[in-house]
Amino acid sequence: MHRSLIARFRQGHRTHRYPKSPPTLPDLFQGLPVFSKSDCIPDCHLCSDCCPTDAISFSAGSFSLDMGRCLFCGLCQEACPTSALTFSHDYRLSTSSRKGLIISESNANKALLVESANRIFRRSLKLRQVSAAGCNACEADTNVLGTLTFDLGRFGIQFVASPRHADGILVTGPVSQNMKLALQKTLDAVPSPKLVIAVGACAISGGPFKDHEEVNNGISDMFPVDLYVPGCPPNPWTILDGLLRLIGIKTPA
């Protein structure tokens, strides 16, 4: 007993002051992509040529980057000769709409919007997590929110064991054909009103596994989604920011 008390004392208080103070992120962290049309060389397309998931396109000559497909590998930033495309340090990437994830010439550098969910979830949100062919990276970065650094419980958000006890599901992975039925059954078992959250490029668009016959390109075409959290995997702060804004809590830039 005394040993554990001494250990407790030596470990100290470790819960981050977020959202009162901003999160600490590594200097190489790749956040919100920033596009500058004036620097872009027309018909250069080096960025879209090296993108592993075809996230960048130039339909009718106009640039767009789909964060729902982006793996945040930074190859495009490296390829761009004029730094017209860069990744900023902004970790706040979540949106309420699939369209909102697309960075284009017209909406570049605008804040991403998350619409607050139904008021009844604001002080208590119970989620059931379903991994549907996720590689265990998104799962790990979601699970970590329960540790004392983030202490998700202080915001009234908790991951529960049964869908019957849940207000919604948080899905990771591209949804393999072998998991499709189990995922549908889990969502069906959640009482209404319910929320659906897609975490990671796979759950949003299929990620690197897009258009494999073994997967379903994520959940976007399966059911309505209330929150999209892009990344491969999203940083835990990115996921936490999305969840908090969903229940109407302001987060620092």
Binding site: S131, A132, A133, G134, G173, P174, S176, N178, M179, A182, F209, H212, E213, E214, V215
Partner: peptide, 8 residues
């Protein structure tokens, strides 16, 4: 197993 099969 097999629920995670993505055909890599």
């Amino acid at each position: 197993l097999g629920y995670q099969h993505r055909g890599i």
